[in-house]
Design a binder for these strands. Structure first.
Length: 582
RNA sequence: UGUCCGAUGGUGUAAUGGUAGCACAAGGCCCUUUGGAGGCUUUUGUCAUGGUUCGAAUCCAUGUCGGACAGCCA
């Protein structure tokens, strides 16, 4: 799968280039930055700051990863000489794929970060990791175990019950060395043996109860092919990879807190280049969505969404396709902060960051999503006027354009009510509204078909009320958008909404599956939308605000030349909708 | 009746022994040729109980509540 990148500022760089500090989202300090600053002060790591972002290439990156990316690359960028590595934690070939390593790189780059020459793979270290394991065996701190997976579970005990030692625990160093070599040589079946660290089966920390550090898996690896039939486990590979790369601060999420003693044990047991400090922070939880790769994969595989880059997905690729900008994501990440408290962030905060950014940069245009025809009975047939319109009131440099106006227009169905609700100050029989950048009109006649559906509104214009005209300053409560029927571009527009109907689909009750809470209205496809003609040449790189409706961008996959398909990134704040709901 | 971690308005965070502040959300007002944006404004908070201190969100103790951990996943 490929997705068009919407930024062009991907810079190539050389080794030891400081990690790019993406501009515009200066993060306030947090407890991790405090630790880094204190370590710099004390000279703990010789003044160096080396972080890493270590994804497993078994899925697409999501907004939660963005938090980690902004943290790790951010810290590197803020410290003189700081570097952030991109390291693929590819120790489980059964689940990993090059599609994911490609998408991960694209997403990190798109977010605005640069690892320079510092791209690594845990699989780069397989040989060294193997040697370290032999070292551990020689030290009497690792042994080959023949227990089956089921047996190992029963020997492990439980959080409150100590485990029992494996009967294979006291094999000699020589026997272990031979067996481990035979494991590597492929002499045993998958799962027949493991290499285990020899620590303490009675430890109150289950991760210290002789954890497996190598398992036999005769599976081809996406980088090493069939060179290996044994693969190191996360706890063993990660700390050593960190050390090999000279990482100073190994930042990970809270669930690894309990693993830290093992991280430290391995590095203390071996002669390694350095001993990085593992620091844990709370992963991002966002309301009205799910964040686990397993669940996102499920949505993709069961075709509940189009793909990993479905605009409803909280993936970086999905947000990008929807029209969210990297700046908005970075600002969001700066705003949510970094702590050890495992909370639930309101998705409204993300939505705010998106609107904030898009409001600054989006070109304003007029588009009618659900058209209703308006005929201006006192406007000359065949006449067209070009109405000047501002492209972006937030940015004078964006200039202006003209929009064609004529006798037959489309307006939004929602902008007319035959029987007006209270506080409705748009169009209704006998009422006047202002047409944005044009005239004040008055509704006189409602025309319906046999079924009683409204097919046409007959209105009259106040000819002096044209923008800049004699009566243009008249106080009119409502202003609505419109598109000239004769000039309109008909297009497909997709309205996206929250993927789930409940704040915590993950957590919605005993035995309930998160998919029960999928929002049936998360995608609404409109095929008869009428757009102002300037949109015919819209490209995915340009963000638009359809006035009074929301922010839109041309879909990078489904748009064709001269025939754009638009995605709604997010709606405008809508105080009328709020009024009605309240 | 294990180990580790955490707890500040509805939500996310700041205050590092010295005036509990910011943002989002919610409400109100002003402004507006986008019911957008913007401006002003209001409501709501230190888990509990003790202790140390001139002074505690912060330090200590106890309790309560919440989270993570029992893959040959990461």
């Amino acid at each position: 799968m490929t997705t068009t990148s919407t930024t062009t500022s991907t810079t190539t760089s050389t080794s030891d280039t400081p990690a790019a500090a993406a501009p515009g989202a200066a993060a306030a300090s947090d407890f991790i930055r405090d630790i880094v600053a204190a370590d710099n002060q004390s000279g703990k790591h010789g003044g160096k700051v080396v972080t890493r972002f270590p994804p497993e290439p078994n899925g697409y990156l999501h907004i939660g990863h963005a938090k980690s990316i902004c943290l790790n690359f951010g810290i590197a960028g803020e410290n003189p000489g700081g570097v952030c590595h991109l390291r693929f934690d590819d120790t489980n070939p059964a689940r990993e794929d090059v599609e994911y390593v490609d998408s991960i790189q694209e997403d990190v780059r798109w977010l605005g970060f640069d690892w320079g020459a510092n791209k690594f793979y845990a699989s780069d270290y397989f040989e060294r990791l193997y040697q370290y394991a032999e070292e551990l065996i020689k030290l009497g701190k690792a042994f080959v175990c023949d227990l089956t997976a089921e047996e190992m579970i029963s020997f492990r005990g439980s959080p409150t019950v100590p485990g029992r030692e494996s009967p294979y625990r006291e094999r000699t160093v020589e026997e272990n060395l031979n067996l481990f070599a035979a494991m590597r040589a492929g002499d045993f079946a998958d799962g027949a043996k493991t290499l285990r660290a020899k620590i303490d089966m009675a430890s109150p920390n289950i991760h210290m109860r002789d954890p497996a550090i190598y398992r036999i898996r005769k599976v081809d690896h996406h980088r090493t092919g069939d060179a290996w039939g044994i693969y190191p486990m996360y706890d063993y590979a990660h700390c050593l990879s960190d050390s090999i790369e000279g990482i100073t601060h190994s930042i990970c999420t809270l669930e690894f807190e309990v693993h830290r003693p093992l991280y430290d044990w391995i590095l203390d047991a071996l002669k390694t280049p350095c001993h990085p400090q593992q620091i844990e922070f709370a992963r991002l939880n966002l309301s009205y969505t799910v964040m686990s790769k397993r669940k996102l994969l499920q949505l993709v595989q069961e075709e509940l969404v189009e793909d990993w880059d479905d605009p409803r997905m909280p993936t970086i690729a999905g947000l990008r396709r929807r029209g969210v900008t990297p700046e908005a994501i970075r600002h969001f990440c700066a705003r949510i902060g970094v702590t050890k408290y495992n909370g639930l962030t309101d998705i409204a905060l993300l939505e705010f960051s998106i609107r904030e950014d898009l409001n600054r940069r989006a070109l304003r245009v007029m588009a009618v999503l659900r058209p209703i025809k308006v005929v201006l009975t006192n406007y000359p047939e065949g006449q067209t006027e070009e109405m000047p319109a501002v492209n972006n009131p937030e940015d004078p440099a964006a200039g202006s354009r003209t929009v064609p106006f004529s006798r037959v227009l489309y307006i939004e169905r929602d902008d007319f009510m035959e029987v007006p609700a209270k506080k409705f100050f748009r169009l209704f029989p006998g009422n006047e509204v202002r047409l944005r950048y044009a005239y004040i009109i008055k509704c006189n006649t409602v025309i319906k078909d046999d079924a009683g559906n409204i097919t046409e509104l007959q209105c009259t214009v106040d000819p002096d009320s044209k923008s800049g005209g004699a009566t243009a300053g008249r106080k009119i409560k409502g202003t609505i958008h419109w598109v000239s029927a004769a000039h309109a571009l008909t297009a497909e527009v997709r309205l996206y909404d929250r993927l789930f109907t409940v704040p915590e689909p993950d957590n919605a009750g005993e035995g309930r599956d998160f998919k029960e809470f999928l929002n049936p209205h998360s995608l609404e496809t409109l095929t008869d939308c009428k757009l102002e003609p300037s949109l015919a040449t819209a490209v995915p790189e340009t963000r638009y605000q359809f006035e009074r409706l929301g922010y839109f961008r041309a879909d990078p996959k489904d748009s064709a030349a001269g025939k754009p398909v638009f995605n709604r990134t997010i709606g405008l704040r809508d105080s009328w909708a709020k009024e009605q709901a309240g």
